[in-house]
Design a protein around this nucleic acid. Structure first.
Lengths: 351, 351
DNA sequence: TTGTACGCGTTATCAG
DNA sequence: CTGATAACGCGTACAA
C-alpha cells in the first residue's frame, strides 16, 4: 500500500538463460526443502538430518543436477582452478610435469586450466592475463624468466605462484626446480674427464627458451674455465624440438667444426636424432664423436648406444609443485619456498 | 522514521571477499562513467564514444583491472571454456592432439580445462561430471567408449561434444577419428604380403584403452581371414606406455612363441623398445623377427631400423576437433558431423 | 536442524 | 550514446 508512490516498480524480467540447466532451487523443490538445505546437504552433509539428506541426494540424482561452479565461485570467491602455463605440450618433457600436477591436484578437487606459449614470453603474458580473469587459486609456470608485465601481474595477483624447471635466488613466490647452468657445467666436466677437448654445444636458443640459454651459459663458463674453446656453438632453429632437427645438425656440425670430438645437445630429443643420424652415416659414437643430451627422456636409456644425459625428475617437479600449492592453499606453513629437485648426470654409452 | 516498525531492516552486510581484486565498478568510478559503460567499452567498443572509450581504457590500465570471468559467465551463461579429457598426458601421442586443440582454441578466446583418466572409464565419468559443473561450452574426449552414466551425461549436456581417435557409426555428437580396427587389419595384411605368417600381437589391453582393444580386434579378424593363428597375443601390463615394457616383452614373446616371425605392437613406444632390445640381444630385425608399431611417433622414423607403423595425424585431430567445435559454437552449419582423418601405413625397415 | 535475505561482479534490457 | 536496474545460481549470516 504505502509505497504505491511514483516508481511503478518495473515488472520482473524473464529468465535470460536457457532453462536447460537444473538449478539448486529446482532440486530443493523436488526434494521439498529449501535451497539452502540442498547446499548444506552437498557441502556439509553432517549438518543435515539423515532423512533430508537422502531426500536431497535422490532429487539430485533424479534431476541429474550439476552444481554451477561459477555461481559457487561468485559466492565463495574460490574457483577450484589451478592455471598451468607451458612453453609446449607436444613431444615435450613438460607433459610429464603436467601429469604430475594433474595427478595430485585432481583428487584434491582442483581443476587444471592449461595453456601453452610456444616459447613466446609475450604469449605467456597474454595467457597470464587471461587466466587471472578466471580467478585461479594458484598458478604454475615454467621458468623464471617472464616479461616485466607478466612478472608484476604474477606478483600482484595475490595467489600462490610456482615457478618450475629453473633456479633463482628470488622467485616470485614458490619455486620447484634446479640449476640448468650447473647441470650443463657438470656435463662439460664429465666430457672433459672422459678426455674430450673439442666440445660443441647445440640447441635451440633464439626462442624464449631460458632453460636452453642457461644450459648454454653453463657450457660456456665451464669450457672457458677448463681452457677449452667456448665458442663452438651451433644454434638450431624451429619452434618444436624434434629428432629430425637433431639428425640434420650432425652434418652441419661436422662441416663447421670438423675436429669436434663431442657434442652436447640442449635436449635428448636432438641428441637422439643425432645419434641415429651418425649410425646411419657411418660415424661411430662415441669413437668418432661423443654425444650427450639433456632431460632424461626415456629414449636416452633405450637407445643404442644409450645416451649420456642429465636426468631431471620431471614428474616429481609437477608433484612437488602441486604439494607446495596445496600446502599454501591450506594455509599450512611452508618451510622453504624453494625446492631444489636436483638432477643427475647419467653416463651412457654415447660418451 | 516510518518503518521503525517490527523488522529492523537488516543492516547491509560487509564485503565478504578480499578487497584485493579490482572490480568493474571501481574502474567506472575512476573513469567517471557507469559500470555499464565500462562493460560496453570492453565488449562492444564501437558502441561507446571515442573519448569515453579511451577514458575507460586508461582507467583499466591504471588500476590493473582484470575482468571476472565467473561473474561474466553468470550474466551471459557463456564460460569460454572447452573441457578436454585424455587417458594420459605424459609420453603420449595425445599431447600432440592437445597442442592442436590449444593452438586453435586459445586464439579464439577459449580456455582449456584439462584432465586425465589414466585409462580408467570410472575416472572419466567423474571428470565429466566435475567438468560439467564449470559450464564448458564444448567438450573433447578421447575415444567413443564411455561408462553408461558418462555417455548419458554427455548426451544430455546440451553442448558440442567431440569424440576423437576412434570411429563409430553413432557418435554422441561430433567425431574426429579413424578406424583403429581397419588400421590394424591393414597392418596384418601388410605383414602377410611381406611373407610373414606367424604373427604375434602385443599391447596393453586390460586397461580401459578401447583403441588398443580395437587394434587387437583388427589383428584377430584379419589373421583369421588370412588363415593365420589369431591367438598369439601377449598382453602387456602397466598403466603407462613405456619403451621399457616393450623391451622386456621380447624375451617373453620369444619364449612363448618361439617360431614367431613378426610382432605387431599396439604402440610405437612398445615397438621402439622392442627393436632396441633385439639389437641389444643380437636378434636381427626384420630377418629374425619383424616388428611393427602404431601411431606414427617421431621415433618410428628416426630409429634404425626405422619402424613400420600406422601414422595417425594426431595434431590434426586436435585442430579438426577445435574447428568443428568453433563452427558449432558459432552456429555455423556443420556439413558432416563425423570427420575421418584416416591413417597411413608407412613401411619402414623393421618389417 | 531448517529457512530467509542478501551479496558476489557482470551483462541484458529498457529508459532517457 | 549512456545510465539504472534486475537477473544469473550459490553460499553466508542470521533468524526461527
Amino acid at each position: 500500500m504505502d509505497t504505491e508512490t511514483d516508481k511503478p516498480k518495473r515488472r520482473k524480467r524473464e529468465r535470460r538463460t536457457s532453462p536447460s540447466r537444473v538449478t539448486m532451487a529446482e532440486v530443493a523443490r523436488e526434494a521439498g526443502v529449501s535451497a539452502q538445505t540442498v547446499s548444506r546437504a552437498i557441502n556439509y552433509p553432517e549438518q543435515v538430518g539423515e532423512a533430508v539428506r537422502t531426500q536431497v541426494q535422490e532429487a539430485i540424482r533424479r534431476l541429474n543436477y550439476v552444481p554451477n561452479f561459477a555461481a559457487s565461485q561468485m559466492a565463495t570467491n574460490r574457483s577450484g582452478i589451478i592455471a598451468v602455463i607451458l612453453p609446449s605440450i607436444s613431444a615435450s618433457i613438460f607433459a610429464d610435469t603436467v601429469q604430475g600436477l594433474s595427478t595430485t591436484l585432481l583428487p584434491a578437487g582442483y581443476q587444471i586450466l592449461l595453456g601453452h606459449t610456444f616459447y613466446d614470453p609475450e604469449q605467456e603474458e597474454a595467457l597470464v592475463r587471461s587466466f587471472l580473469g578466471r580467478g585461479p587459486e594458484g598458478m604454475v609456470v615454467m621458468g623464471t624468466t617472464h616479461t616485466a608485465a607478466a612478472d608484476s601481474l604474477l606478483k600482484q595477483a595475490g595467489l600462490p605462484i610456482v615457478e618450475t624447471w629453473e633456479w633463482t635466488e628470488d622467485p616470485i613466490d614458490l619455486l620447484v626446480g634446479y640449476s640448468n647452468e650447473d647441470a650443463a657445467i657438470e656435463m662439460v666436466e664429465h666430457l672433459f674427464a672422459k678426455g674430450y677437448r673439442r666440445l660443441v654445444f647445440s640447441g635451440v636458443v633464439e626462442s624464449g627458451d631460458a632453460r636452453a640459454k642457461a644450459r648454454l651459459r653453463g657450457f660456456r663458463s665451464a669450457a672457458q674455465r677448463l681452457g677449452l674453446d667456448a665458442d663452438r656453438v651451433l644454434l638450431l632453429h624451429g619452434r618444436n624440438v624434434s629428432m629430425k632437427v637433431g639428425a640434420s645438425s650432425i652434418a652441419e656440425i661436422r662441416t663447421r667444426f670438423p675436429d669436434a670430438d663431442a657434442v652436447f645437445y640442449s635436449s635428448d630429443v636432438f641428441a637422439a636424432g643425432a645419434v641415429q643420424e651418425c649410425l646411419r652415416s657411418g660415424v661411430r659414437v662415441p669413437e668418432d664423436i661423443a654425444i650427450a643430451g639433456f632431460g632424461g627422456f626415456e629414449i636416452a636409456e633405450i637407445l643404442i648406444p644409450s645416451l649420456t644425459t642429465i636426468v631431471v625428475p620431471s614428474v616429481r617437479i609437477g608433484q612437488q609443485a602441486a604439494d607446495l600449492l596445496l600446502a599454501k592453499l591450506k594455509k599450512q606453513p611452508i618451510g622453504e619456498p624453494r625446492v631444489n629437485v636436483g638432477y643427475k648426470l647419467v653416463c651412457g654409452q654415447s660418451t
